[in-house]
Amino acid sequence: MSDLATASYLAQADNETRLNKTLRPPFDVVHRFSAQSIIMTTIAAILLFVFLSPILLVVAVSFGEKIEGASWVWAFDPSNYARVFVGIGWPDEITLLYAYKLGYTLAYAVLGSLIAIAFAFPFTYFLSQCSRPVQAAWLVFILASLSMSEVFIVMGWDIMLSNRSGLPALFKATGVTEWLKETGWLAVLKDWGLANPRNVKFKTSQMATVLTMAYLVWPYAVILLYAPLSRIDRSMIEAARTMGAGSFTVMRTVIVPVVRIPVMGTLLLLFVYLLGAYVTVTYFAEPAHQTLPVSIYEAIRGATLNAPFGAAQAVVLLSTAGVFIFASLWLSRLAEKRGR
């Protein structure tokens, strides 16, 4: 029996090879196979060189050793990492300067992405209910604002928040400042770091930093939420309505459970994006409250010029991002499974 099965299998395999061989003339096969493999190999080489090697280089350089007054040399020196977490004097003393920077990086990114999602979610939900042409028009608007460079956005917010023109000037002109002074709110704002004795002051402040970051990723949030929200089966909502659910109940019992995982995934992606925010922080956060990207820049191009230490900070940032990217991939895979 098993011999028979083997024989029939072999006959079949033989048959199939014969099929494949005669499907195209052999010469043609060789010719095209090589043309195609040349293209794919070239592309693979480009990808390895330009796409992957920079990331590996960052990791490699991060173990390098800085020579005082000169450049740096290759080494296997984990002290750069120790410096990020516990300071250069460790183990004799512990400086948490860079650990704090990491902390600010995370805090700004978490707050910024949460605020962005909170406003983007209802917006996108309403958007997905519009007609297709209206959606397309809104999407053009969202994409245009999404592609605005961080530089331009910071410029706009800077004008809006600056003391000479913008909101503080508006407050003064309309008498809000006077009113704040009389009611004592100005003193409260001053305690929060949002005012000086004469007027409100939004720059520099952590609030300005976080709000600008939220602004920065809001269009991304809409774009990322758009896919899952616009794929919700409308008849499901209608079914819930016929069973007596109001809009809020529909949102709570149908929409949110369906899109919970994509929303988490979006949150993680926004968070990762904000980890790397540079211009916003240099502009709106005071030096004591600045983040890793700023000190990475300082180390690599700026004043301190210590490439290995900059690279080590970049690796820390990268690993943080990596953890969250994997989490979001895992979530999206989970969502796909649920969807089936």
């Binding site: 079949q12 048959n15 199939e16 014969r18 099929l19 005669t22 499907l23 195209r24």
Partner: peptide
């Protein structure tokens, strides 16, 4: 599609493996 087994012929010519 290719058959797992068997053959096709057209006017006497075998075309089983002709794409």
């Amino acid at each position: 599609d290719t058959p797992t087994r068997g053959s096709l012929s057209l006017n006497g010519d075998d075309i089983t493996t002709l794409p």
